[in-house]
Design a protein around this nucleic acid. Structure first.
Lengths: 233, 233
DNA sequence: GAGTGGTCTAGACCACGGA
DNA sequence: CCGTGGTCTAGACCACTCA
């Protein structure tokens, strides 16, 4: 169980403040040498630290120290910028695209739509202190909000669409699961293919129980800590 | 990316119904041979499937097909038996111990207690169709519920303590995170040391905002899918 | 006691990132 | 172009599980 000891030693360095958040670790070969072992064993130790959320990988770029996770509060609406700022973090949201498209099978099912329905589709990347931490896609029923994207194609993405949609929210349905990140998703997050991510799905319904929109986010595993509270009344 | 293809081939077997839930896969050596590769590469493919929640490991026993995950609804109170039964699953709860102890540092902090406070501590294992899926520990303020364990030491554990405590619940605070399973925790769940688990923490407070108890659960990653809903009023 | 998974060694080649 | 991480080979030993 050599890799456990290696893990502990690296952890000491981190906890001792020798290594700062987002700092790059030495190369695998160098680390393997200094722990007097092979790359395979060394990688075992690194993977363990990755699972524990203490370090993260950027595909082909190396291993880095994880910053403190963002506390992600499960609320009716999701406002990344405000959530980050309130925790003294530096957020950035990048818009990847906003268009009106035919809903695919999965979206049809999630929103309970008839075949060939159209939805507005907004894709975003979320950054903290310059590091990509999540990819999010937002599908909004086009029949309920026909002019959402048409009015001002440029700024709609920056300016939160939520302003138009959220006033109608009555119920919010969450689903959370651990998922492996692959292909496009992985590369958008600069993650190694097959690494673990957290999937957060949020469906909103209005007063009449009609499903208005669905947001799906994929987070880097170490980037968030989920929390929320309920109160009886 | 040979291991991706191997993963896909195994997945086909599972989805094709050739392999049933909780059934054991052939040994790593046999699989490596039949895919004409080495154990290391084969294990890469298996780890990927594990991350995706399609198969799971029992420490030193082998790899098994994952059953469908239990839908875990985040509510004010947690009733494993009822949750499982309502989804046509076969639950079993095993009590590992019930005693009154001095609260350790961590529990003191979680419940906001004064040093040297005592708490009732109940430990349980949760099974589905005979497979261990979670370990849970429940700490309850002893000063608020002094006679909880004294009355009938034997049956208290079976008979849910919740009956005594839950009527006072007013607020519930959840925290969810991905954690690596180690040592005692791993062996209780028959998991390989270092494998991924889901940690669910739940703190209940009463009308006056006083924290009454905290439940901490560690779930095998593939065993549950978290969900919940909110509604505005 | 046979076979298993857990761990480890000592290499290798390739494609990509960054200078 | 160099060094990196991603991937892979071909073995080995040990402690444990299970029949």
């Amino acid at each position: 169980m050599q890799y456990i000891q290696i893990k502990e030693m690296i952890l000491e360095q981190i906890d001792g403040g020798m290594l700062l958040p987002r700092q790059k670790l030495p190369s695998e070969r160098v680390l393997a040498l200094s722990f007097n072992t092979t790359r395979i064993t060394l990688r075992e130790a690194l993977s363990l630290l990755e699972t524990e959320g203490r370090i993260y990988r950027e595909d082909r770029r190396g291993w880095f120290i994880s910053p403190l996770p963002l506390r992600y509060s499960l609320k009716e609406t999701f406002d990344f910028t405000q959530m980050a700022l309130s925790q003294a973090r530096l957020p950035k949201t990048e818009c990847l695209g906003a268009k009106c498209v035919l809903a695919d099978q999965r979206v049809l099912a999630l929103l309970g739509l008839a075949p060939f329905s159209t939805v507005h589709c907004l894709e975003r990347l979320y950054y903290l202190e310059g590091r990509v931490v999540a990819y999010g896609v937002h599908y909004i029923r086009a029949d309920c909000f026909p002019h959402l994207l048409k009015q001002d194609s440029g700024s709609t993405c920056e300016k939160n669409c939520l302003d138009h949609v959220s006033p109608f929210y009555k119920e919010t349905q969450y689903q959370i699961s651990a998922r492996a990140l692959f292909g496009l998703m992985a590369s958008r997050l600069r993650a190694t293919s097959g690494s673990l991510g957290l999937r957060v799905e949020r469906i909103h319904s209005n007063q009449e129980g009609k499903k208005l929109d669905v947001e799906i986010e994929y987070w880097r595993q170490d980037a968030i800590k989920l929390e929320f509270h309920l109160s009886l009344e």
